[in-house]
Write a protein that binds this DNA or RNA. Structure first.
Lengths: 190, 190, 190, 190
DNA sequence: GATGAATGAGCGTTCATTCAT
DNA sequence: TATGAATGAACGCTCATTCAT
């Protein structure tokens, strides 16, 4: 069978894993994840044959989740800068609202458990977003860059700003704005 | 004194730890680190009372190493942009020449084993560098930013570019250049 | 349930622990205990979360075992002195037949791994026995004593005699008899 | 050389060992003992070739210390019962004033690190005391007992009472008195 | 003689994975 | 399919003892 019985259980495992990896790193135990997901230890391995598989699928699920949030409500008709600002704000909002997921993604990002294939697949999502901005590249408003670098820049600056927000939650708005200036400078032609 | 603590051994442990953490993450075992350092397992704990202590001291040592490399040969008399480009190039060079150290620093950066105090101390080094650019801020060439954000931006964009270089080592020069454009846009007033 | 916890295994662990603690003290290793119990090292921790838990449960099990043996065949209708002699003889017999258990109990008795709560629970068993002798106290045949002191006196004199028997096993009967005289003198009104 | 340099250091080690064994048991580390004695780790082994040697010598020293305290001020001319009461009170006082030493002696008493030879030597001290009471045996006031049993009874009942005092320090006098009644009953002819 | 760095076996405990139920 | 008891290698750390200084 291509997929085991309960989609619900699968999602519960993924959700518990995100939470656990976010707070404990990739060394979070499968026992804890199973317990938090409300299933037995052995059941986890019915859905994911090994812990590494779980970690890779979690990475992909998180990337997809993030991408969906970022693209939501994209203002097709607005100016390039406004569209970029929309993407930026969505990114910050997703991270601020889903701190555990964001932290999980950071942990997975540096872990050698996540394969090159997963990383490639994860980057593809951001290429989708990059293509939303094709007009911006053609018009010269955005600087030409090596493939995937726009997505990575977004990723990396978002994450940086979210770290500042995490350490100093009172000033979220000023970090968001300063972050966007940095971001816009980083990707646009002056 | 019976036998003085050996600075040489201490450095060997730190070097082995950087290598191991770089490739295996913070879960690299103390046994492996000791073995690679050429000492007995127990000896490691003569130099570092716990693994967490070792990890924190490694973080600090790596930050200091990186900072020294970046600041070396700083052209005090050149233009602000040239001075930034110097810092950028030094950063890329350090990372390209010390891939294990760089990877270790990434792992430590996301690990909760590294204390807030160590992070603060690590950031202080970059504030030194930021102050090298004070003239740039006063003249309005560099954009005003929240404290520590310039250092973090440098860190994060450098790291991003080094990841691209790591995956595609043939094009180091083009990544370095494209990276600097991104970086300069990120930190300067347009 | 996947596989129920095995009462048999639990008992095997407790038995192996009694043997090991009896001969090696509380520093007997969990690895040895597990091996002697015929299970894997990790399995011990399925039944007892920590070594300290094992030690405390062992203490309780041993006290219960001893108490059951002592109270067995108690001659309700006999004279107070005969009933005390019965208790005395049962105690000596239990100790002589279960030297490892007795030695384990001694080790546990002086170990700070055994909590005050366990000690309290262990003493309660002997209070049961003391209450078997209430008539003796009321009639004035037995001397009034602070609570728990009768039980402790029994414990301590039994143990002393068993040590003599242990060192000089040929004269078990004469030690038993001399011991009882000491014991009866210790607890009765002259 | 029959004895190494400093008697003072030797005594410091023994004192530190008594304290450490009293609170931590025989598993107290040589490193801690050395530190508490104000000497280097290695120096301990100059005075005692192994930890077991230290433990055995400590046992003997403690027994000697206790015996000296018990025999001090012995009232040669008093009645047998008064002389016994003196011994009893001295025992209780020594234990109450030297809780660490008493606890150390308990630990050593059950440890298999203390050899049979040391135990024999330790018992000899109490035979000295027993011989102080020879008149009592001859007159029939004290019950005839197997060799060493009087000493052991004293030891064991004293220790029991000291445990009660330890747990309930407010009632020291009532425990001491009740204890003596038990003790006198245990050793005298009715 | 005194020191304390160096050692490596041994400790209690964890954990991904297997498999009997 | 779901369960959780069973496993044993691996972990961080301790320690009695040795020996270079």
């Amino acid at each position: 069978m291509a997929r085991p019985l309960s989609e619900e259980k699968r999602n519960a495992i993924l959700a518990a894993a995100a939470e656990a990896v976010g707070s404990l790193g990739v060394s979070a135990s499968t026992a804890k994840i199973a317990k938090d997901a409300g299933i037995a230890e052995g059941t986890l391995f019915v859905y994911f044959p090994t812990k590494d598989d779980l970690l890779n699928e979690l990475y992909l699920a998180l990337k997809a989740d993030m991408k969906a949030a970022i693209a939501a409500g994209y203002p097709t008709e607005a100016s390039v800068k406004e569209r970029c600002e929309h993407l930026w704000n969505q990114s910050i909002d997703w991270g601020a609202k889903n701190p555990a997921k964001r932290r999980a993604l950071r942990q997975l990002g540096v872990s050698d458990k996540v394969t090159e294939a997963s990383r490639k697949a994860g980057m593809a999502a951001f290429r989708d977003i990059q293509s939303m901005l094709d007009e911006g590249f053609q018009s010269g408003i955005l600087r030409q860059q090596p493939k995937d670098m726009l997505g990575a820049t977004t990723d990396v600056l978002t994450d940086m700003v979210l770290e500042f927000i995490h350490r100093d939650p009172g000033n979220i708005e000023s970090y968001r704005r300063a972050g966007f200036e940095t971001y816009w400078g980083a990707i646009s032609n002056k």
